[in-house]
Design a protein around this nucleic acid. Structure first.
Lengths: 196, 196
DNA sequence: CCTACCGATCGGTAGG
DNA sequence: CCTACCGATCGGTAGG
């Protein structure tokens, strides 16, 4: 009956790997790099994990699950499309900001997944994208969103939202919710003057 | 006095490398991979190029120059901000579509540049981003663009424009100029119904 | 968790 | 453009 908030060795490995995979990429970061960061030998890592592959899988699929749970919750709680979109983006930005290392690996290094896992991963991402497509469709039906190429719109929205891993600074002036609000504003009304 | 349209061995190497760097990433694609694609031995590559690094540098800096030339031309030819933005995006998409392999490497693999070259590369990208910032500012002054966080707006615009390397299909139904028009529409007026 | 090690593969060079 | 090769490093295993 441990009440300690100790983080398991396995999770320490995953956390360290996230940091190094983000910094140097999955291929360039070696098991020796990860081990030395933890003050142990590379061979010792294998008492906790099966392979380098496995680490990447855990990082990518954990994040995928987080994103999918968040969008499911939004669809449960909110009713109108604009609010759904607003909250989906807010959650998305929060998840990225809560663990920037893992989120960056999820977004940037997933290509290195082994081919079976890669297929599964891609299908989870499609599932996530599809949730956004449904929201946009709903907005069109509610007559609050313009009729657009929905696939195209979702790609554009997610690209902007995911791009924040490239510039987000936890010590910067914008907190995650502000970033989300700014993004949503941009997505909803664009750059052009409304009262021109 | 050769009139042949032959492509030099060096350029063949660069083209093949672009393809493989995009497909497998810079680190994972080996010199032996590139050589075998060309039907020669890995050692033979070094008669035409100095190092693997050099290939990446050539790809990244060639593209950087293309992008910078294009935006300079836009600023020379057009006057009002909206038209400048429209044409800048059109050129950007055209450059990406004209050589998807090289563009993808430019956008995805530049992190592997050696540290001196990386610094130079990042400064070229900042220069490019700055040209967009100037256009947005001009639009604010002309009272056609809303006042926004300019840095944020440029990041969002470029993320959407660059994301096309992830889904653009040369054999797909949308030609580059259509993609550019769609993107520009989205960026200018957003998702929300105007006549609600 | 360590020592000791393996086979494979890497970028690159020498010398022709 | 090739053969022959180098030192370095990789992910991972055996055995304790």
């Amino acid at each position: 009956m441990q009440i300690e908030t100790q983080i398991s060795r396995k999770d320490q490995i995953i956390q360290t790997a996230s940091k190094l995979f983000r910094l140097k990429s999955y291929e360039a970061a070696s098991m020796r790099d990860i081990a030395s960061e933890l003050g142990i030998e590379a061979a010792s890592l294998y008492s906790h994990i099966k392979s380098k592959d496995e680490i990447l899988e855990i990082i990518c699929f954990r994040k995928a699950e987080e994103f999918l749970n968040a969008i499911a919750e939004v669809n449960d709680i909110y009713f109108d499309a604009e609010e759904k979109l607003r909250m989906a983006i807010k959650n998305h930005v929060r998840i990225i900001a809560s663990d920037l290392d893992a989120a960056t690996v999820f977004l940037r290094e997933w290509r290195y997944l082994s081919s079976e896992k890669l297929k599964e991963f891609v299908s989870l991402r499609h599932k996530y994208e599809n949730e956004y497509r449904i929201i946009i469709h709903q907005g069109e039906n509610e007559n609050v969103f313009d009729t657009v190429d929905v696939k195209f719109a979702v790609l554009t929205i997610l690209s902007a939202v995911n791009w924040i891993v490239e510039w987000y600074n936890p010590k910067g002036s914008m907190v995650p919710d502000e970033i989300a609000d700014n993004l949503t504003g941009f997505i909803l009304t664009g750059l052009k003057k409304k009262t021109a």
